[in-house]
């Protein structure tokens, strides 16, 4: 059950790590009129369309122990390549576009005039975010987090390139299933993992759907 524990910890950490960045990027894409937002949107979408193995390769180049970034992080006690943190980074990056998309959808549902009204009443943009935008979008953000979590649970290609398959450290459920399928009799041993994977993903997706439905109902009733 080590791989289940690792998958859960990696998916949870990846979701939490992405959350502030996903909120910031989604807010920028939805609310900014800056011309650069189209370029930012294209970059955010890249991990969704690139083969995960290519994403993993690019991440490995970026976080290589011989590179500046990798060396700096390692000296801070945060080694990425071929460590647990590498699996987290890979899962976070690959799930990022979905996370941003879900949060952007919930931001789109909030009338931007409410934010302007808040500012006309003397609240700064930052205060407006905490008092108006966040309370009206958190269910959508949680739904996005659930989808990002489910995506992180299934991450394989980028993880195996950046973090490798180290039992007890980076061997998540998909990596373990892949390894077992290569071994004699492995097919019997993965049944439990397959069932656990399906159950976890179904829970995450159903939770996201329920939250999303509740949230849309709430906005319709209230506005």
């Amino acid at each position: 059950m080590d791989s289940v524990r690792i998958s859960l910890s990696v998916a949870t950490a990846a979701t939490l790590l992405s959350l502030p960045f996903a909120v910031a990027v989604a807010w920028y894409l939805e609310r900014s009129r800056h011309a650069a937002r189209h370029a930012v949107q294209s970059i955010v979408w890249l991990p969704l369309v690139l083969p995960p193995v290519v994403t993993g390769y690019l991440l490995l180049k970026a976080f290589s122990p011989r590179g500046t970034v990798g060396q700096t992080l390692a000296s801070l006690g945060l080694p990425v390549a071929f460590h647990w943190l590498g699996a987290v980074v890979a899962a976070a990056v690959v799930g990022f576009p979905l996370f941003v998309m879900m949060i952007a959808l919930s931001l789109k549902a909030v009338d931007p005039r409410l934010e302007r009204l808040s500012q006309s009443l003397g609240r700064s943009p930052w205060q407006t975010f905490w008092r108006i935008t966040l309370p009206l979008t958190w269910p959508g953000m949680l739904a996005g987090a659930a989808i990002a979590f489910a995506r992180a649970l299934g991450e394989f290609g980028a993880t195996i390139i950046l973090a490798g398959r180290i039992p007890g450290e980076t061997e998540t459920i998909p990596l373990r299933i892949h390894a077992e399928l290569d071994a004699p009799g492995g097919e019997q041993r993965i049944i439990g993992l397959v069932i656990v994977s399906i159950i976890l993903c179904v829970i995450a997706v159903v939770w996201a759907r329920l939250l999303d439905a509740w949230y849309r109902r709430r906005l319709e009733l209230d506005t």
Partner: peptide, 9 residues
């Protein structure tokens, strides 16, 4: 900026 104008809308 808007939040410093003290204009009701």
């Amino acid at each position: 900026p808007m939040h410093q104008r003290r204009i009701g809308y």
